[in-house]
Design a binder for these strands. Structure first.
Lengths: 123, 123
DNA sequence: GAAAGTGTATTAATTATATAATACAGTTAA
DNA sequence: TTAACTGTATTATATAATTAATACACTTTC
C-alpha cells in the first residue's frame, strides 16, 4: 500500500498538487507500482494533518487523469500501464529540467557552472 | 531603465512573486545594475496586462527586502551593494538547484542521467 | 505655474485554496 | 450480520491572490 511515509511538504504550492506530484514521481521511480492500493483519504488526511477535502481533491484529479481508480467503499488503486508511465516520466523530467535550466540561464550561469552546481548539491 | 522587455509569466505561481524573481535574477546576471530606475508601476501594469495593485505588491516587497528604493512622485530605483548581490546569488542558485536535484532523486534519476538531461535541454 | 506622471492608500468584488462539520451509500472484516 | 472503514457529497467559513475603481500627495517636465 502506498503509505506516503516519506512525503514532505516541499514548497508553498497547493498541497493537493504536491500530493499529485508525489504519486507521479513515485510511479516514475518505480516505488509505486500498478495495482497498488492507495492509503485511504481519511488516513492520509490524519497522517499529513491536512483536511480530508484537500486529499479528496488530489485523489479526484488523479482519477480524472486516469492514474488511479476508485469505487465507493473500497480503497483506491493505482492503474497505470507502460504507456502512461512513460508519458508521466517524459513530462516530469523535461518540465522540471527545463524550468531549472531557464532559471540558470536567466541568472547568467553557464552550462559548465550549472553542471558543477548540480554535482555539489547532489552530495 | 528596467523595462521588463523579456519578462514572461513562467508558471502558475503568484504574479507578484514572479516579478520579484525576475528582478532578483536580473541582479544576479548583471542585467540589472545598482542605481537603475524601475519602470513605473502603472506602465508595468499596462505592459503585462496585470492589475496595478499586483505590481505594487511586488515593488513593495522588493522595497521591504531592501532591493529597491521608492519615494512618492519619483520612479523607484534599484539599490543593491555587493553584499546584497552575493546574498541573492547564493540563495537563488542553491534553492533552484536543490529543488531540481530533489525532484530528480525522487524520480530515481542518477546524477549522470541528470547531468545528461541538463546538457540535452540546454541546447 | 500647470500638466502629466508617479508612489501610496482605500474599499469592494472574485476566484482558488484550505478548513470544518456532517451525511450517506457501498465494501471489508470480525 | 454487524461494526468499522471507505468513497462521495454538501454547506459554510477563512485566507490569499487578483482585479477594479478611485483618491491624494509629491515629482518631473514643459
Amino acid at each position: 500500500m502506498i503509505s506516503f511515509d516519506d512525503f514532505i511538504l516541499q514548497d508553498d504550492s497547493p498541497i493537493y498538487l504536491q500530493i499529485i506530484q508525489y504519486v507521479k514521481r513515485g510511479i516514475v521511480s518505480g516505488a509505486i507500482e500498478n495495482g497498488e492500493e492507495m492509503i485511504s483519504r481519511r488516513a492520509l488526511s490524519a497522517l499529513l494533518g491536512v483536511n480530508p477535502n484537500t486529499i479528496q481533491k488530489a485523489y479526484h484529479m488523479l482519477e480524472e487523469e486516469g492514474i488511479i481508480y476508485s469505487r465507493t467503499g473500497a480503497k483506491s488503486c493505482v492503474e497505470v500501464d507502460e504507456a502512461m508511465k512513460e508519458s508521466i516520466r517524459r513530462t516530469l523530467l523535461s518540465q522540471d529540467t527545463l524550468k531549472w535550466v531557464q532559471s540558470m540561464k536567466q541568472m547568467g550561469v553557464s552550462m559548465e557552472e550549472a553542471l558543477e552546481l548540480c554535482r555539489e548539491v547532489w552530495e
